[in-house]
Nucleic acid binder design. Sequence first.
DNA 1: ACCTGAACACCGTTCAAGT
DNA 2: ACCTGAACACCGTTCAAGT
Lengths: 201, 201
Amino acid sequence: MQLHKRDVVEAATSLLDNYGIADLSMRRLARELEVSPGALYWHFANKQQLLGAVADRILAPVGTDDSAAGDWRDRIVSTCGQLREALLSHTDGAELVSASFAAGQSKLMSDVLDRLSTAASEAGVAPANAELAARTVVYYLLGFTADEQSRMQWDAAGADVVRTVWTENPSARFAFGLRLLIDGIAAETEHVLEKTPKVRA
Amino acid sequence: MQLHKRDVVEAATSLLDNYGIADLSMRRLARELEVSPGALYWHFANKQQLLGAVADRILAPVGTDDSAAGDWRDRIVSTCGQLREALLSHTDGAELVSASFAAGQSKLMSDVLDRLSTAASEAGVAPANAELAARTVVYYLLGFTADEQSRMQWDAAGADVVRTVWTENPSARFAFGLRLLIDGIAAETEHVLEKTPKVRA
DNA sequence: ACCTGAACACCGTTCAAGT
DNA sequence: ACCTGAACACCGTTCAAGT
């Protein structure tokens, strides 16, 4: 039978889940699908593009529910929560999406960026800075989650030394950093509204 | 003559500067040094460790001058400025340091983290959260700079479409995101001091 | 249109054996 | 102690040729 793009992406995702990003190679994927390596290049221009498709598969659940409701703070929190959850649902998910985002290969990651930008605008951030505020949130989220996930995997593999103050309560820790950014965005708003620097404690 | 660790790191750095991270392979490095690939494994356990040494070479200029002076805001700004400058001074510097940091192979990156943590503590962030605040800054810095640098390189390679609002005035854009984080840290302080949420605009 | 076979030009790492 | 030679087990990508 014919090989379809979506079969390839599905096989790639299960390779990722079962063996991790290091073992997600074009050759191994071809072997799994019982085709020759060259066959994949009929459907995808290169590996980056294929990984981008896997990234978008991982990100599919993001932004499907309530993330359009509430004020700008609620929307940032819920979008980020969904995004983090999606990344944590696949082995090396954060690393893969991070790489695809950096390479400009993930359409859905751009969508997330747009929604965060809108939220930042609504918070009162100047239009020229809204996307940057959104990116700041995304850089944090990807860095934090990739870190968290690699520690989890080390941990599951039985390495000690890793289980410090660091590995416990990752959701609360994640929320703390996100709060920092949200407070920063709110402060930026005040600059604009009050035309004066925020009062120091 | 004998091969020394520091010769290897130096050759690796010049390979990086001239050809980029994709061409920084153990085999190519060995060829450049006119030794067999196996020789490198006498001096370094693996490629990751060697890249960590290159990362620390890149980071050597960070924190050598005035970055211990001033209040906590000044110290964060100057440490981050020096760090970003060091990364931009080498082809793919941000990507390489980012990878080494994630792999826990850069001693100097840990030092930077410590200094940012101290600054955050001084700002009034609770001890348990100070390192996290520092990490948030580092995740932002690495994400932003890697992005900036890859655009610069695309741009220098003659790609258009890249030169949008995005590529202009990167230092001002960097400062904006950093300000967001600093304001967020300051707001966190207020929570602690006033024991009440920050007033909304 | 879609895929195979085979090649090209590489990788990181190990290790017996040499000096 | 330090390095070579050679091997092991892989990579991503291309492309003439087949169906």
